[in-house]
Nucleic acid binder design. Structure first.
Length: 356
DNA sequence: TATCCACCGGAATTTATGGAAG
DNA sequence: CTTCCATAAATTCCGGTGGATA
């Protein structure tokens, strides 16, 4: 039923970007100098997840590539230190150097500075919580590399940035992307449907319904369209129907969360499972529960149980990934609970230990 | 209002890890 | 193989916050 799954992939970059003309223009203008071999300007791209920040940067760079050879690197920064970010950047850029774990960060900066024949663009994706705030300081020492920073909350991000770098991302150098309105997202979905689904499987009205359910978040809308098409096939519908959309949306959201949970380390999954099994649960109860379970859970594992302080950081991360919610109950005490009760950790470390 | 208590999160400090040099 | 070094992860320390209580 899906004729071309490629167009529904997360990493798919469309040839034509719908309804991002102004932003595309703005970003192209900032990066334009690189075509002539000059340093591009730094840019901050911000907006909620799934509205096309990454796609915009990839699409823009791909367009520039058509005009000239452009050296660029795209690094996901989530949970990585400055060293890891720099190392991955060097690996992607045309630089001959051996970089490995343990290479001093200043050496990495030096190879980046000395190893390039011409200026390059470094895209720092999901830069929200890079622990090393001085990453920008280090990059400032590399005049030939300009940065495109992608983050969710520009104000929070800028607050962590040194005063001296803050003005770099002023005015034209900050491109905020917002959610699409229903009509716009429906246009985007229409293109995907044309290219990836059989003709007449879905009409405009249904696309608008999907766009509405997804609340203007493109990633959600695109995945919902895909899942709805699969449901329609399972159910023998000739067209996508309303219940295909509703169920498709549920499954799309779950898939997105599953992808999130899979990328997390063991400790995080343990905490997640405890919250899922016992939630809603208060912080104090959760710590006590962890303490009582820890020995059996970590039995035979390479890792050992972690301290309370570290657990707090982990819970924060689980919330950022939209896996756990923090409820302010009416009476004031906070409770944690899973966003999706049915969504188990793939490790599922407690299954055989806990009854029920 | 003053004090206590639990929690949060930043920062300093310690520990583990893997490559490199001897 | 052992020692040394820098990074990254995890722990410890600690000041700030806000609700509860007298």
């Amino acid at each position: 039923m899906i004729t071309n799954d490629e167009v529904f992939r997360e990493e798919h970059v469309p040839r034509q970007l719908e309804h991002r003309g102004a932003e595309l223009e703005q970003l192209s203008r900032a990066l334009q100098p690189i075509v002539d071999g000059d340093r591009a300007e730094d840019v901050l791209l911000s907006g909620p997840s799934g509205v096309g920040k990454t796609v915009l940067s990839r699409h823009t760079l791909a367009r520039l590539e058509e005009k000239a050879t452009v050296a660029s690197a795209h690094v996901r920064c989530v949970g990585s230190s400055a060293g890891v970010v720099l190392r991955r950047a060097i690996e992607q850029l045309p630089i001959v150097a051996d970089v490995h774990r343990g290479t001093p960060v200043d050496d990495l900066v030096a190879t980046l500075r000395d190893g390039l024949d011409s200026p390059a663009v470094l895209v720092l994706d999901e830069a929200d919580d890079v622990p090393e705030t001085d990453l920008l300081d280090k990059l400032a020492l590399v005049p030939s590399v300009s940065s495109v920073v992608i983050c969710h909350h520009p104000d929070d991000w800028l607050a962590h940035v040194d005063e001296q770098h803050r003005s770099t991302f002023d005015g034209d150098h900050h491109i905020p992307l917002s959610r699409y309105v229903v009509d716009e997202l429906a246009d985007i979905l229409e293109v995907r449907a044309e290219r990836g689904l059989p003709p007449n499987l879905v009409d405009r009205e249904k696309l608008e319904e999907i766009a509405d359910l997804a609340a203007g978040v493109a990633r959600e809308g695109i995945q919902t369209l895909r899942e709805a098409a699969l449901y329609a096939e399972e159910r023998g519908h000739l067209q996508i129907e309303r219940d295909d959309i509703v169920d498709g949306h549920e499954r799309a959201l779950r898939r997105i969360r599953e992808a999130n949970i899979r990328s997390l380390p063991f400790h995080h999954q343990v905490l997640y499972e405890l919250i899922r099994l016992e939630g809603p649960i208060t912080g104090t109860e959760l710590h006590a529960f962890y303490d009582s379970m820890a020995n059996s859970v970590y039995q035979g594992q390479a890792q050992t149980p972690v301290s309370r302080r570290h657990r707090r950081s982990i819970i924060t991360k689980l919330r950022e990934y939209d896996l756990v919610e923090k409820d302010e109950e009416g009476d004031g005490d906070v409770q944690y609970e899973p966003v999706d009760l049915e969504l188990r950790s793939p490790i599922d470390p407690l299954a055989e230990i806990l009854p029920q």
